[in-house]
Measured scan of single mutants.
Amino acid sequence: MKGKVVSYLAAKKYGFIQGDDGESYFLHFSELLDKKDEGKLVKGSMVHFDPTPTPKGLAAKAISLPLE
């Protein structure tokens, strides 16, 4: 699924993505496929991810940034 980063707290390594389906997904650095892309996780960045339901809500897994 595609989505847009709505927040990312680099110090805490987490944030949120708004998916194309309108839902909010929890984003964690550990799910970023290329850790070098962390600096690109800023508000408004477009990402691809696997939407995954968890006991705490919806989460983004296997997060990647589109090729530039």
Score class of each variant (00 low, 15 high):
I17S: 00
G39W: 14
A59M: 14
M1W: 04
A10G: 08
I17W: 01
K4G: 04
K36L: 09
F26Q: 03
G3I: 02
A11L: 11
D50G: 06
V47N: 00
E38A: 10
G22Q: 05
Y14Q: 05
Y14H: 05
H28Y: 06
V42K: 13
P66N: 14
M46C: 11
G22V: 02
I63C: 04
L65G: 04
P66I: 15
V6C: 11
H28K: 07
T54L: 06
M1F: 07
A11C: 11
G44V: 02
H28C: 08
K12D: 06
S7Y: 15
M1Y: 05
G19D: 04
L27G: 02
K13F: 05
D37C: 10
A60I: 01
D34N: 13
A60K: 00
H28T: 07
L67H: 13
G15N: 00
A11K: 13
H28D: 06
G19K: 00
G19A: 05
L33D: 04
K43F: 11
T52F: 15
D21L: 03
L41M: 05
A62S: 13
L67Q: 13
D50A: 14
V5G: 00
G44C: 07
D50T: 15
P51Q: 04
D37W: 08
D50S: 15
V42N: 08
G19P: 00
D20H: 09
L9C: 14
G39E: 13
E31C: 07
P53K: 14
H28N: 06
D50P: 00
H48K: 12
G3Q: 00
H28W: 06
I63M: 03
A11H: 13
G19H: 01
H48I: 14
F29T: 06
T52R: 11
A60N: 03
I63R: 00
A59P: 02
K56I: 08
G39F: 13
H48A: 12
K61M: 10
I17N: 00
A59Y: 12
F16C: 07
K40A: 07
L58P: 09
V47D: 01
K13L: 04
L65T: 07
G3M: 00
S64V: 11
L33T: 08
K61I: 10
K40D: 04
K61G: 07
Y14R: 05
E68R: 06
Y8I: 08
K61E: 04
G57K: 03
E38R: 05
D37F: 08
D21S: 04
K40W: 07
L41V: 05
T52D: 09
I63P: 02
G39T: 13
P55M: 08
M46G: 06
L32G: 01
E38K: 05
A11I: 12
L9E: 12
A10D: 05
Y14M: 07
F29K: 06
L65A: 07
E68A: 13
I17G: 00
A60D: 02
L58S: 06
T54S: 08
S30R: 10
L65P: 03
T54Q: 06
M46N: 10
S45Y: 07
T52N: 11
K4R: 14
K35N: 06
G3N: 01
V6G: 05
K40T: 04
D34H: 09
D34P: 03
F49W: 00
I63G: 02
K2L: 11
K40R: 13
G57R: 03
S45H: 09
I63H: 01
L33I: 12
K56Q: 11
V6L: 13
V6R: 12
D37G: 06
F16M: 07
K40G: 06
E23F: 14
L58C: 08
P66A: 15
A59K: 14
F16Y: 08
S24G: 06
P55C: 09
Q18Y: 10
E23W: 09
G57E: 02
M1I: 10
F29A: 11
I17Y: 00
E31S: 08
V42D: 05
S7R: 12
F29D: 03
K12C: 10
P55S: 12
D21P: 00
G19M: 02
A59T: 11
V42Y: 09
V6E: 07
K12H: 10
G3P: 00
H48M: 14
L58H: 07
L27W: 04
K40Y: 09
T54W: 05
Y8G: 01
I63Q: 01
I17T: 01
K43M: 09
E23N: 15
L41W: 01
P51V: 09
L27P: 01
L32K: 00
P55H: 10
P66E: 14
G44E: 04
Y14L: 04
D50E: 13
L27C: 03
P66Q: 14
S7W: 15
M46R: 15
S24E: 09
A62E: 07
A59L: 13
K35W: 08
A10M: 11
F16H: 05
S64M: 11
G15C: 03
F29L: 10
I17F: 02
K40I: 05
F26N: 01
V5Y: 02
G19V: 03
G22M: 06
L41S: 01
D20I: 10
Q18H: 10
L65F: 14
A62R: 15
T52L: 13
V5Q: 01
G57W: 03
L67W: 11
A59D: 04
P66F: 15
G57Y: 04
S45V: 15
S7K: 14
D37I: 08
F16Q: 04
E38G: 05
M46Y: 12
S24N: 12
K2C: 12
L27E: 00
K13Y: 04
K36D: 12
A62P: 02
L32H: 02
E68H: 12
T52K: 11
L9A: 13
K4T: 13
F26S: 03
A10R: 13
E31G: 06
G19N: 03
A10T: 11
K61V: 09
L27Q: 01
V6S: 10
T52Y: 15
K13H: 10
K35R: 09
D37S: 09
L33S: 06
S24C: 14
K36Q: 11
Y8W: 07
V5W: 01
Y8F: 05
G39P: 14
P51N: 04
F29M: 06
S64P: 01
V42G: 07
G57A: 03
G3K: 00
E68M: 13
P66G: 14
V5S: 00
L58T: 04
T54I: 04
L65R: 05
K40S: 08
K56Y: 12
G3R: 01
K2H: 11
V42C: 10
K43V: 12
F49D: 00
Q18P: 01
K43E: 09
K56F: 13
Y8Q: 01
Y25S: 00
E68D: 12
V47K: 00
S7L: 14
D20E: 13
H28R: 07
S24K: 15
K2T: 14
I17L: 05
G57N: 03
L41Q: 00
F16K: 05
F29N: 04
Y25D: 00
D21M: 03
A59I: 15
M46F: 11
P55F: 09
L33H: 05
F16G: 02
K56T: 09
K56A: 09
V6H: 07
L41E: 01
S64H: 14
H48L: 15
Q18R: 14
S24Y: 14
Q18L: 14
P66V: 15
K13A: 05
A10Y: 11
A59N: 06
D34L: 06
S24I: 15
L9V: 15
Q18S: 08
G19I: 02
A62Y: 11
Y14S: 05
V42S: 08
P51D: 03
F26C: 04
G39Y: 14
D37A: 09
M1P: 03
Y8D: 02
H28I: 05
M46L: 14
D34F: 06
G22P: 00
S64D: 05
Q18G: 04
M1V: 06
G15A: 02
D20A: 10
Y8M: 04
Y25T: 01
K40P: 02
L32W: 02
L41N: 01
Y8L: 09
E68G: 13
G19C: 02
P55W: 09
E38T: 05
L33E: 06
D50M: 15
K56M: 11
P51K: 07
M46T: 14
G19S: 04
S64G: 09
L58D: 04
V5H: 01
K40Q: 07
T54D: 06
L58I: 05
E38D: 04
D34A: 06
M1T: 06
D21H: 04
S45W: 05
E38I: 08
F26A: 03
G22A: 04
V5D: 01
F49Q: 01
M46K: 11
S64N: 08
D20W: 08
G39V: 14
K43R: 11
K36T: 12
K43Q: 09
T52P: 01
S64E: 06
S64T: 11
G3F: 02
G3A: 00
F49S: 00
P55A: 11
S64I: 12
G22T: 04
Y8A: 03
D50Y: 15
L67R: 13
L33W: 05
K56L: 10
K2F: 13
G44T: 03
K61H: 11
G39Q: 12
L9Q: 12
S24R: 14
P51T: 06
A60F: 01
K4M: 12
K36H: 12
D50L: 15
L58M: 11
L41G: 01
E68F: 12
S24W: 13
L41D: 01
P51W: 09
Y25K: 01
I63L: 05
G44N: 06
S45K: 13
P53C: 13
S30A: 09
D21K: 03
K4A: 08
A10K: 14
S45P: 06
K13D: 02
V47Y: 01
